[in-house]
């Protein structure tokens, strides 16, 4: 029995070590670590938020309405942000390239506002949230077809690293 206990404790120790190594590997952005990330992200870490909750929601073309999927993601975000309430964060609004520059800045602002308001309605303190729009100036996907455009129409919850 004593041996078994020791073994179990040792195993737990080994797991912790393994996690630390995994986190370190992710922090330096080693390729191929993404699959491990979900298992090893420390609960409450930024990585946990991005990987296990999802930091972004997507919009239909020229729309600022939250889709059911977007609401589901924001519900998970609200839960997580309530649990780990030490974070302040910025809600970034983005548009795809199929709009003019000025309009897309305003459209991105609307998207960030809609996402922010939703989180507030789910109990996240508005004081923790800041909004910003990047219009079409910060695409994440850079091809010229629908698959890319749909990834670029987004609101991204960016945790404040120093908080």
């Amino acid at each position: 029995m004593m041996n078994m206990e020791k073994f179990a404790r040792g195993l737990r120790f080994a797991a912790v070590v393994a996690f630390a190594l995994g986190a370190a590997a992710c922090a330096t952005q080693q390729p191929g670590e993404q699959a491990n990330a979900a298992n090893v992200a420390a609960p409450g870490s930024e990585q946990d938020f991005v990987v296990n909750v999802g930091d972004r929601v997507f919009f239909e073309t020229d729309s600022t309405e939250l889709t059911p999927q977007a609401r589901a993601t924001l519900d998970k975000q609200a839960q997580w942000l309530t649990q780990y309430n030490r974070y302040s964060f910025t809600m970034e609004g983005h548009a795809d390239e199929r709009g003019t520059r000025e309009y897309n800045i305003a459209l991105g602002a609307r998207r960030s506002q809609v996402a922010r308001d939703y989180l507030a309605s789910r109990g996240v303190n508005p004081q923790r949230m800041r909004t910003i729009s990047y219009g079409k100036e910060r695409p994440v996907a850079v091809c010229n077809d629908i698959s890319c455009w749909s990834q670029n129409r987004r609101a991204v919850t960016v945790l404040n690293a120093s908080s």
Binding site: A106, A109, R110, Q113, V114
Partner: peptide, 8 residues
């Protein structure tokens, strides 16, 4: 333009 609360 001034944007506040999503309106410009």
């Amino acid at each position: 333009s001034l944007e506040r609360g999503g309106n410009s």
